[in-house]
Design a protein around this nucleic acid. Structure first.
Length: 568
RNA sequence: CGGGGCAUAGCGCAGUUUGGCAGCGCGCCUGCUUUGGGAGCAGGAAGUCGGGAGUUCGAAUCUCCCUGCCCCGACCA
């Protein structure tokens, strides 16, 4: 292709609307333009990248037996009422009415539609399992769209749904999809982790997120460098430390005036925060209040807390006035000793001996506290956030933290939709079986953003070869005024096309600096510079985007080299 | 949804405090020169100063209302 015939509106300066690398570079490189908050137009260059990503996804899914379909984006409310999500989805779902005043949703996801499809067409267990997917537009009216294509309101998602007679069948497909997602991300050339995640409100059990590692990512993941353990911070298990075997000291009550925080208490009593415990009071499911005890240096994990039977969900801290009424002291002086409410203690807190805690008496703390002797009623649970350096739950090393961009999420739906929507078939024995479902999502437009986030330098994007808008950027210097350059550039473009190399020839009447700067910005993996000087010796310059230095060679040799790189 | 900020030419910004001809850089158009890392000179086009109401002889500037956008927190591919 020729630059003079392609719409590539690059920007020299950073638009004020963007402040992270991927957003800035996609705008500046002429890949996307914003229409309104969270709404983006994909320009020719951007579409080329999207299509490549989609092609890879299709290949990996089709290879594993998934079949592509395409479902409507506008969906009747009736279906959503059946699943109960017309109410449950809230403002995130864009709603509208047609000319007959009937309610519709702009689909944020397709479980309802695909389940409806399945109950109409899956008339026998002999058709199972079935794995359907589509690459489609979704709309989610995000509270706060940001970071350009990383969190847009309208976006392209590959969503897949599988249907099974039993869990074994589901597990096989789940594993296939897990492999497919890893294969896609590997082919795209990304550093990523498949992490254990919370199913959130879509699924009903454990799931995996595919996180592309990037410092600007919104999610924190805990992973073990020595093994393949990786989990979302919400999910990462905090293993029990070895219990202290110190001989019990005498329980003592000490005045701790003006000590409101663990840091205050630790400093005042000259002990480390990890020898103190803090007691948090949350709302209970059965009782008004529930206590959760953590080691002084640890943080509560709200997801884990929400799974505790006695804790009300969503997890909410008790109001200070309620605490004062119930305990006659402020939150800073609470401890597990003699507390008249259900008490959960984190494993790390339980492992302590002779620790410090609040005395449930304003301005006093207890020292030398021991669980068995002084606060035996506590139930030991895992309820804290892991911290870097914690042992990995698989016993193979210690955890580290990284930030990630969630580009994919796969989970088991079970019968969450098939049951309320009546999706069942008869099995071989003539019994009605409600189908088990799996759900597999991958954000395609987000993935493009994540790629740029991971693959760029100060000058611009460095596309992984598999998804680059072009294989090679041909910089023809003086194309319009030097016949030899003109001819050589056209010939090189032809040579590329004959070899199946996608090339962009910069045939514009621009100066060298402009052309080089834009080539770096756009980020094709290979760059070939054709200038009068080197051409006199029959040479052109070749430089990979990610390397500083290029070299000179005859054009045919370079075309061959690029063709080879493309096919390996 | 809560908190903060911004809105002036296609893009980036100054001008607003203290009301008085709407400006600068980049980009765009024309011409000449230049030509391997975002050129130089000359000329030119381009603005409902986000919208509405008000104060005033006079409003980009002051007041009120509205809208849009960005950033920080709880959700998600």
């Amino acid at each position: 292709m020729r630059a003079t015939e392609t719409l590539i509106p690059t920007l020299k300066e950073t638009p004020a609307e963007a402040d992270i690398a991927s957003h800035v570079l996609l705008l500046r490189g002429g890949f996307i333009r914003r229409l309104a908050s969270g709404l983006y137009t994909w320009l020719p260059l951007g579409v080329r990248v999207l299509r490549k990503v989609e092609a890879i996804i299709r290949e990996e899914l089709n290879r594993r037996g998934a079949q592509e379909v395409m479902m409507p984006v506008v969906q009747p409310a009736q279906l959503w009422r059946e699943s109960g999500r017309w109410e449950a989805m809230g403002a995130e779902m864009l709603r509208m009415k047609d000319r007959h005043e009937r309610d519709y949703a702009m689909s944020p996801t397709h479980e309802e539609v695909v389940t409806d499809l399945a109950r109409r067409v899956l008339d026998s267990y002999q058709r199972l399992p079935v794995n359907l997917y589509q690459i489609q537009t979704k709309f989610r009216d995000e509270v706060r769209p940001r970071f350009g294509p990383l969190r847009a309101r309208e976006f392209t998602m590959k969503d897949g749904y599988s249907f099974h007679l039993d869990d074994d069948s589901f597990e096989r497909t789940y594993q296939d999809m897990r492999d497919a997602y890893s294969a896609v991300l590997r082919r795209v050339g990304l550093d990523f982790r498949a992490v254990l995640a919370d199913g959130g409100n879509i699924g009903d059990s454990e799931s995996h997120e595919f996180q592309v590692l990037a410092g600007s990512g919104e999610d924190v993941i805990a992973y073990c460098p020595e093994s393949d353990y990786a989990a979302n911070l919400e999910m990462a298990e905090a293993v029990a430390p070895a219990p202290s075997d110190a001989a019990p000291l005498e329980l003592a009550k000490v005045a701790t005036p003006d000590c409101r925080t663990i840091a205050d208490v630790a400093k005042f009593l000259a002990v480390e925060p990890e020898h103190c415990v803090k007691t948090l009071i949350v709302r209970g499911a059965e009782t008004p209040l529930v206590a959760i005890v953590l080691r002084g240096d640890h943080e509560l994990n709200l997801t884990k807390a929400g799974r505790l039977d006695a804790v009300a969900t969503p997890v909410a801290f008790a109001a200070e006035t309620d605490i004062r009424t119930a305990l006659q002291c402020s939150p800073g002086s609470i401890g597990p000793v003699g507390l008249a409410m259900p008490v959960y203690a984190d494993r790390a807190a339980t492992a302590l001996a002779n620790f410090v805690c609040g005395a449930n008496d304003e301005g006093y703390h207890l020292t030398g506290v021991n669980w068995r002797r002084d606060a035996g009623g506590a139930q030991t649970v895992d309820v804290r956030n892991v911290v870097p350096g914690d042992p990995s739950p698989d016993g193979k090393g210690t955890l580290q933290f990284a930030r990630g961009i969630e580009v994919g999420h796969i989970f088991k739906l079970g019968v969450k939709y098939s049951e309320p929507m009546g999706l069942s078939v008869q099995n071989g024995a003539g019994e009605d079986v409600t189908l088990t479902m799996g759900c597999y999502g991958m954000g395609v437009t987000r993935l493009v953003g994540a790629i740029v986030e991971q693959c760029h330098d100060d000058a611009g994007i460095i596309w992984p070869a598999a998804v680059a808008p072009f294989d090679v950027h041909i910089v023809a210097l003086g194309y319009d005024r030097d016949a030899a350059v003109h001819e050589a550039a056209d010939a090189f473009l032809n040579a590329c096309e004959e070899r199946g190399i996608e090339a962009l020839l910069d045939d514009r009447d621009e100066r060298a600096g402009v052309k080089f700067a834009e080539a770096d910005l756009i980020g094709a993996p290979h760059r070939v510079t054709i200038g009068a000087r080197n051409l006199k010796r029959g040479l052109v310059e070749y430089k990979p985007r990610h390397e500083g230095q290029g070299d000179l060679a005859p054009p045919e040799r370079i075309a061959e080299r690029i063709a080879q790189a493309k096919n390996t």
